[in-house]
Each structure stands twice: as structure tokens, then as C-alpha cells.
Design a binder for these strands. Structure first.
Lengths: 318, 318
DNA sequence: GCGAGGTCCTCCGCCCCTCAG
DNA sequence: CTGAGGGGCGGAGGACCTCGC
């Protein structure tokens, strides 16, 4: 197993980050099945955890549906009408969808996917900031704006510790950064559906950056605020990696089970429900870990058929 | 393990069902990540496999997103503006979304979920048909419409074998069935967003039923078609069950990994990539199966902490 | 059967504004 | 800084029609 057992205390998450614990007590949605649950998990992870826009999630879902339509279109012999009938979509609409997907596959035109766990404009802000406004220690951190020396000292004293080596920015500079990132994030999108950078969107991005703890807002004595880069990455690196792993695993697991549904050869699905005395839990998990590794080692032989195994176990919820 | 290893020959799926093998050669979507892949898998399973409408999938995704917004709304102290800002949604819109979700939770108003793998109007058609138009063997199967005895015999001879004990219906009767089912499927939906049964929708449902092999259309000598129930369930029972299991498993696996991301205690994640000589594959899988079972048995003790284990392994694709 | 064309309605993702507490 | 109004644009789901093949 590539990952050790984790026993960290959930109370130790005293970051300023509001999004640390996504353990949503799924208030049971009436009339929902497992698929709906999966969609809800995805939505919460993407929108609350990743900070993607509401519309971005809907767009991604729509793109996935379009792609499903496209595959039907292909397997039905490129028949617009039949494809439309099968999915209850107008043939005309099918046509534009097919064109969209094909232009995405052949030319570079990008579809509206999520593209990564977190939106571009959130992820790359720290990097751009550090690049455009680096700070070298003897230099003053604060911008030269109408502040007396005492005021500067006062503000500087109010800064958090352990800051990345970046300058403190004015509102204007901060906004400029956001604008730049947003522009860059869309430079590959087909101009048809390009999201304009509205005031509302800027406010959204600002709040996301502040809430995630990536940026800290500082009230200056004169009223206008300053902005201070607080971390070198949008979300804590290890958490981001774990979330990345989670999605990769779910995808791989999903794919394997799909093969299992189709009764493809060489696929094994396992489900165990059992009860373990709490004092033996750690022991049990460690043994399982070793067991699986030993098994994989035993049968592993270079040049054989490439295989993958996904496993997860833990306490039952709800 | 609850499931044996499956080595069935994929070529043995000679059913008339067009949707048997959903193994979509995922034409790689550019600019996509694992999340996008998961969405695509969901879309293809739901729309091609389950036969849900395109719009139904979009609605389900939107409902999931609304639910994510609602949980944010709660955790932010019921603040419309802040919730809206966090997800880039108008406060006004947040309000209506919150009302929607709350009325779904308290009163019976249903949200637009998928509710099950396959749409109601597809699943329950065989049951309703058998109930409304049962056939008892000495009786004639065909409706009494202007056909000569010879024509009736001719048509009857063209029927497939192994039919459920249901009458053959006319176009009108068949349509009536569909209408009934559609009406019933929406009787719980809040009347605001109720889908009207349009001609286009009827055509869609008809094609789904024909393509899935649930219903067979028969050309009578006089030109007008007859409809014949070919199966007692919309999709083959064992396949449906496997798909149901797949979604349940993916949901459970997802939930476990979420706990793993949050570093909750007692959660183990495992990933193994390895290569197995083909001649030892079956042996290896069977041993793994036994290994896991033995492990669970060893530590199982009534009254301990309830645990669940998900496992899947198989050949790597792509 | 199929493609291609046009028209209509409605919802809703987004944008902006004001005003009262 | 919040809630509660207002008005407006564009995209797209959905339904309908005809015509030419």
C-alpha cells in the first residue's frame, strides 16, 4: 500500500482555512439513489473544497453529458435524429454538440471542463504574486503610499509570521493580479463561451482567496486595505495531494467496477462488512496492508499483464 | 468477497439489447482531470446505460450543486450574500435555492433527482403491461382489430419465443400505457417543474423501450404496427443488479476516501500496481479473495466497530 | 426514414442598480 | 454588511412546423 494508516486527530486542524473539513453530514436528500449521492459528493468537493464556481460545475456536468451524446452519435452511425431521440435532444442540438466535441478533439478548442481540482485563477495566484512582486528582506514590504513611517511600522507589526517572500499589495495591485489570472485562464477557451470578468466575479474570487487563507486582508490606519500573500499555494499542499489522489482513485475504482459489470475477465470486486473491536483496529489495518502488499509481491512478475488494485476500508458512517 | 471472479466471454452477449456493453473507449477529452472523467462515466452510465433523458442528468447535477450551496448556506450562518459570493451565485438565487431544498426536506416536494438507475417510466412499463393486459394461454394474444384469421396466424407466427404472458397491444394501447406511466412518474414532483408529455418525449420513450429489447414492434400485414412485451423487466435483471451494486460501491468507496482525505482515524487506503502472468491470474484473484475473507473473519467480532471494505482489481486500461 | 431550416416559450446563469435596516 | 426589491441580456432546454431527399 502506498499510504500508511492515518490516525491524525481531526481537532488538530486549527488552520484559518474554512474548508478544511468537508465531512458533510449529508442531510439525506429525499428520493435520491447512490448516483445522486455520488453527484452530491462531487458537487460539494468541487464547489466547497475546490472553490469552483457554481456555473463551472454545471458546465462540467453538461460537457460530460455532451460527451455521452457524442459517443452515442458515433455508435449509432452518425445519425443525428436517432441520437437525439435516444437522449431526448433535438437533432439540431445534437449537431452543434457533435461539432463542439469534434472541434475540441481535432482543433484545440477546449470544452468547459473543470480541468483541475481548483480553478486556475485560484491556484496560480501565489505563483504570479511571488513572480511579479517578490520581496527581498532588506527592502520594505509595504508599498510606498501615503503613510507615515509610524503607520508603516504599525501595519508591518500586524502582519502574520511565516509569510512568503512577497510584497504587500494595494487594492489596485491585488485586483490587477486577479484580472491577469482570469484573462490567462481563458486564453485557450473558444471565445464563444468566455466568462467576462465582472465585479461580482472579482468579489467571488477575492472572497475565495481570503476564506482559503491564501491571502490576508489588512486594514491600514487610513482606511484603505492592503493585501498580503499568506501561503505559497492556494490550499495546503498535502491536502491538495490527498484530494487529487481521492479523485484518481474513485475514477480508477469506477472504471474497474464498470469492467466488473460487463463481466470482463480477470476482474475481482470485493465487499466486506464486519465489526472490529476498537483495540484491535490498528493491528487489523496494518495486517491488511501487509497482506495485500505481500500478495501483490508474490504474483508480480515483470512482463505480465498490468493490473491495478484499489482498496479502501474504514468505519461505516450513518 | 460476495462476488465470484468473472471470466465470462464478452462475445457471449448476443442479446438484442443494444446497451449491453458500455465499455466506452473514452476518446480522451482534452483538458480534463479525474473529476471530469468521473462525470463522464456517470453521464454515460446514466444516459446510455440507464436510459435517462439528457435533461434529467443535467437536472440531477444541478440538484447536487444546489444541495452543495444549501450546506454552505447552513455552515455560513444562513447568510444569503456570503453564500452567493462563495459560489458566485446571486443572493436572490441562493434564496430560492434554499427555499427549494428546505421545502424538499420538510414538506414532500421532490427535487429533480434521478431517483434510480433507470427512469420510472421505463422500469415500470413491463409491470403495468402485465397487470393491465395479462394473457392467459387459451385466449388469443392479438387484439381484435380488423385482421383476417390468416393474418392473425401470420402475425402470431412471427412473434418471438419465450414471451411474458401479456397481450399484444395496438399503437393506441401502447401509447396509453406510456402516458399513464409518465403521469404517475410525476405525480410527486412539485408542479412547478413538471415535464409535459410531448410528442418528442413519447417518441424518445418508445425508442428506448424498443432499443432495450423490452418491447418488440411487429409490422402487421395492414401496415399499422403492433407492440409486444418481450421481457418482464426493462433491463436484464442480473445486469441491473450489477449496475446498482457498482453505484453503491463507488459511493461507499468515495465516502471512505473522503474520510481518508480528512485523516479520520481507522481509515486505510490501498493502491497496488503490478503485473501478473496471465496463466497465474485466476489463481491470484482467487487467493486474494480468500485472503481478504480470512482477514475479515479473523478480526470480526460482534459488537465491535462496524467497518466496511471495498476492493476492486483488474487489468489496467489504456 | 433522414438532414436542414425556421419560430416560439421559458428558465436561469449572470450582469447591474437602489433602498431600508 | 445584510436582505429585498427592481430591470435586463443571452444561452439553451424543450416543443413545434415545413421542405427536400
Amino acid at each position: 500500500m502506498s499510504e500508511p494508516i492515518s490516525y491524525s486527530n481531526p481537532l488538530s486542524k486549527k488552520n484559518t482555512n474554512h474548508y478544511d473539513d468537508l465531512e458533510f453530514k449529508v442531510v439525506e436528500v429525499p428520493n435520491s439513489c447512490a448516483i445522486d449521492q455520488i453527484l452530491i459528493r462531487l458537487a460539494i468537493n468541487i464547489m466547497q473544497g475546490g472553490g469552483h464556481r457554481y456555473g463551472a460545475f454545471l458546465d462540467a456536468a453538461m460537457t460530460a453529458a455532451k460527451f455521452a451524446i457524442y459517443t452515442t452519435y458515433l455508435s449509432e452511425g452518425k445519425n443525428f435524429r436517432k441520437t437525439g431521440l435516444l437522449h431526448h435532444v433535438e437533432p439540431k442540438r445534437v449537431k452543434t454538440i457533435v461539432q463542439e466535441v469534434e472541434s475540441a478533439l481535432t482543433e484545440g478548442k477546449l470544452l468547459k471542463t473543470l480541468a483541475s481540482q481548483e480553478p486556475y485563477y485560484l491556484i496560480y495566484l501565489p505563483h504570479l504574486w511571488l513572480k511579479k512582486y517578490p520581496w527581498t528582506p532588506p527592502q520594505p514590504r509595504l508599498p510606498m503610499i501615503g503613510l507615515t513611517r509610524e503607520e508603516k511600522l504599525e501595519v508591518e507589526a500586524s502582519l502574520p509570521n511565516d509569510l512568503p517572500n512577497a510584497l504587500v499589495l494595494t487594492e489596485f495591485q491585488f485586483m490587477e493580479l486577479i484580472e491577469l489570472l482570469h484573462l490567462e485562464s481563458q486564453k485557450d477557451s473558444s471565445e464563444a463561451h468566455r466568462v467576462p470578468l465582472s465585479d461580482a466575479l472579482i468579489e467571488h474570487i477575492k472572497l475565495r482567496l481570503l476564506y482559503s487563507g491564501t491571502v490576508v486582508q489588512i486594514q491600514s490606519p487610513r482606511g484603505f486595505p492592503f493585501y498580503c500573500l499568506a501561503r505559497t499555494s492556494y490550499s495546503p499542499q498535502d491536502k491538495r495531494e490527498r484530494i487529487y489522489t481521492m479523485f484518481e482513485d474513485v475514477d480508477g475504482f469506477f472504471q474497474l467496477l464498470q469492467a466488473w459489470v460487463n463481466k470482463e475477465p480477470g476482474v475481482l470486486r470485493g465487499l466486506e462488512v464486519f465489526e472490529v473491536p476498537i483495540e484491535r483496529k490498528e493491528e487489523a489495518l496494518q495486517e491488511l496492508d501487509k497482506l495485500i502488499q505481500a500478495w501483490a509481491d508474490k504474483y508480480h512478475q515483470e512482463g505480465g499483464q498490468p493490473m491495478v488494485l484499489h482498496l479502501a476500508t474504514g468505519p461505516v458512517k450513518r
